[in-house]
Structures are given as C-alpha cells and as structure tokens.
Simulated scan of single mutants.
Amino acid sequence: MRTGTRTGDHWQMVWDGVGGNRVRWAELPDMVRKSIEVAVGSTVVDAVSQPGGFSPGLAARLRLADGRRVFAKAVSGTRLAEAVAFHRREAGVAGRLPAGVTAPRLLWSGGGDDWAALVFEDVAGHTPALPWRPADWRRVHDALVTLAADLTPSPVDLPPIGHDPGLFSGWRSLAAEPALAAVLEPWARDVDRLAELEAGWPEAAAGDTLVHFDLRADNILLAGERVLFVDWPHAAVGAPWVDLLCMLPSVAMQGGPAPADVWRASPLTVRADPAAVDRVLAALTGFFVHSSLLPAPPGLVTLRRFQRLQGEQALAWLRSRLR
C-alpha cells in the first residue's frame, strides 16, 4: 500500500529515492574530470546525470569521443566527507566481485586527498518503475534469490554484518533521548523493550553470504532480461535473508507488496529463525525511526522523509510480528 500520493516534485523525489542534489559533470573540478578521461583513454563529449540515490556526488553516463560509453561516480569531501569513504569502500568491494555476479563491472577507481571517483561499464537499463509493477517485483525477487545463492559462501573477505557496534542502535538511542521518543506512536514508545530486542541483532544476522545491505529500487537496474544490483559500499557478510528483509519496507512504501506477504512466500526465508528475524527487523526499524527524527545531513534535505516512510512500513511489520 502506498503511504501517500504524489503532490509535487518534492514528494516525487522523496518517494522515488531521489536526493536531487547530484553534481553534474561540468561542475566537477578540472582535475577530477581530467583524471577520469585519462583513466578511460578518451575525452568525454556528453554526460547524462542519473538522479537516483541520495549521494551529493556525480552519477553520470558518459559518452566518449571514441564512441564508447561508461558510467562514472565521483564525490568531493567538501560536499559530504563520509561520501568519499563510501566511494572508496565501494571500489574495494566492486573490484573483487566475481565476474558472474549481476553487478556492473568496475573499470577504474582513483582519487585524491578529498575526492574519490569510480568508472564502471555502462549498462543500458533503468530502475524499476514506481509504483512497483508485479512483474518487475517478481523479476527482482527471483534475481535476489539467485544473488544470495551465488554469493554463499561469500567470495569476498569482508567483515561480518554487525561488526560496527554503532550501527542499528536506534532504539537504544531513543531510550537515552526521551524527548525524541515522546513523539512516537504509543506502541513504539516502549523503547526499552525494543532496545533489548535490537541489541542482539548482530548475532541474529550472522551468516556466510555476501549481502549488499542497501537494496532499494534506486540501486537496481533492469536491463533487458538482466537484473543488476548497483552501489555496494555497505556490503558485508551475513545471513542470506538479510537483503530481502532490509529491502521490503522500501518496496511496500513504493507501492509493492506487503512485507509479511513476501516473507511468507520467499524461498530465502525458509531456514530463517523467526526470533532472529524479529531482532534484525527491530534493529532496521529502530534505524529508520531514530534517523527520521534527526536533522537532515547537509545537502540531503529529502533523506529524513524517505527514512520516515520506510520506518512506518517497518514498524507496522514489526508490530504485526510481535503481537
């Protein structure tokens, strides 16, 4: 079920997962543009910015003077310092993905003290139409099942999904911030109970599958018969059902099926321990709910509302499981 209607450009950007603050090719520093052109061995004659996602950096399909096309990402630390770290981490992950994984192939990565850039093969595809079409969702779900199988055991040596103790601690943060917790709906104000449930999520999410850990419609490309998963900076090793669980709130809020309905029918969940699922879902919900109450990061004015909409769906799913 959709959580609202499109009443203007701002709402559409939020609902579609568009930050609306991309840097365009011509706005990059000359040094960055030159580095990319040297890396690809040709000058750029046309650049089409891709709006999806919330990064303030470049994301553009580039047409080169020699006729080739590539996709480039670049960001400066002056816009958002942590985005540089994300780009560098993505380069480390994408460069080690096996050739058979349904993700664009990394061609080059580089950077300086305060910027990072990546160049991928260009994919002539598009993100899923929103609201989700049933046929597109079935395609993506089937591809996600295949992806989990292909990435088990993980072909890349990465930390376990819960290695960062500060990640997914939203309910514990709310327990320490009563003023924020007071604005929550009555059921969610039992933050101590939810914080206790959340605390065990790293062990609950453990496994030996390489998981993307940031799947949404804007990180998926439909290209002919292929489904490709893009943007891997948050990849880690965990349970094979984690990506599906983390994606379902965004699917629901963007017009797709209800999370519980997908969960009951998916082959990814057959061996999932219900208690472990509750812990990871509680942690994901806490992340969305707490984050949505914080001030927006610089330049990311639509992010908090996007998190709030996902949090509403996640909270409804969690509440139905804990009754």
Rank of each mutant, 00 (worst) to 15 (best):
D9I: 11
Q12W: 12
Q12P: 00
D16F: 02
N21P: 00
W25V: 04
A26P: 02
E27F: 04
L28C: 05
M31V: 14
V32G: 09
R33K: 12
I36V: 15
V40W: 06
T43C: 07
L58E: 11
A59S: 15
R63C: 12
A65R: 15
G67M: 06
R69E: 15
V70L: 13
A72W: 07
K73M: 05
T78A: 13
L80H: 12
E82M: 12
A83P: 00
P98I: 05
P98Y: 03
G100M: 06
V101K: 01
D113K: 15
D114C: 01
A116C: 13
A124W: 06
G125Y: 02
P128S: 05
R139V: 10
V140R: 02
T146L: 13
T152C: 03
P153D: 02
P155F: 00
G162A: 04
G162I: 05
G166S: 03
L174G: 08
A176F: 02
L184P: 00
E185K: 11
E185G: 14
A188E: 07
L194A: 00
L197M: 09
L210H: 06
H212E: 12
D214F: 03
A217C: 09
N219R: 06
L222H: 10
E225R: 15
V227P: 08
W232Y: 14
G238P: 02
M247I: 07
L248W: 02
P249W: 00
S250M: 10
S250C: 07
S266D: 06
L268V: 08
V270C: 09
A276W: 06
D278P: 05
V280Q: 06
A282S: 14
F288K: 00
S292N: 05
A296C: 10
A296K: 11
R304T: 10
R304Y: 06
F306D: 13
A314T: 00
A316P: 01
L318K: 00
